[in-house]
């Protein structure tokens, strides 16, 4: 699958990819929705919610966003299972890093503007199919004609 095919995967048909945001900074949730616009559905929960792993397993997101190292560590295993990328936003050090296929980016990226988050997330969403993409019937049904 080429990158263009992968991009068409989401834009040609509904439903849109699901981004699960688990943050301790509630102000971030509106910003994430604003940044991703029509490109994805963003569902937000407090990072302090119980059983985040279960939440991720059952909702099968296409990407997960967190804003603390503790939450990132808690979800590392689940994201590997789901083959969904995990984007960790480090507000205090103004960095962003991505966990993909069980491996972190070699270097955190500088978080110089909100668009860094948008670009990283969209880049990850359209990079490769996730387990959620293949296993959610509605998504899988809508995908082949544009993804082949």
């Amino acid at each position: 699958m080429t990158r263009a095919d992968a991009t068409n995967r989401w834009t040609a048909t509904e439903p849109r990819p699901l981004v699960l945001a688990l943050t301790g900074t509630p102000l971030l949730t509106g910003l994430l929705r604003d940044l991703l616009g029509e490109s994805a559905v963003v569902r937000c929960f407090p990072a302090a919610s119980p059983d985040l792993q279960g939440l991720a397993r059952d909702t099968r997101p296409d990407a997960i966003v967190v804003d603390s190292e503790e939450t990132a560590l808690e979800l590392a295993e689940v994201t590997a299972e789901l083959r969904a990328p995990l984007v960790e936003i480090r507000l205090r050090s103004r960095e962003l890093r991505v966990l993909r296929h069980g491996e972190w980016d070699a270097e955190p990226r500088p978080l110089s503007s909100p668009t860094t988050i948008r670009n990283a997330l969209l880049g990850e969403l359209f990079r490769a199919p996730t387990a959620a993409f293949e296993q959610r019937p509605a998504l899988a049904a809508s995908a082949p004609e544009v993804a082949q």
């Binding site: 910003l31 909100p114 988050i117």
Partner: peptide, 14 residues
């Protein structure tokens, strides 16, 4: 922090 600034701006404005 440009991210937090933008987040606060969005909330306050909208």
């Amino acid at each position: 922090d440009p991210v937090l600034r933008a987040a606060a701006r969005l909330v306050l404005a909208q």
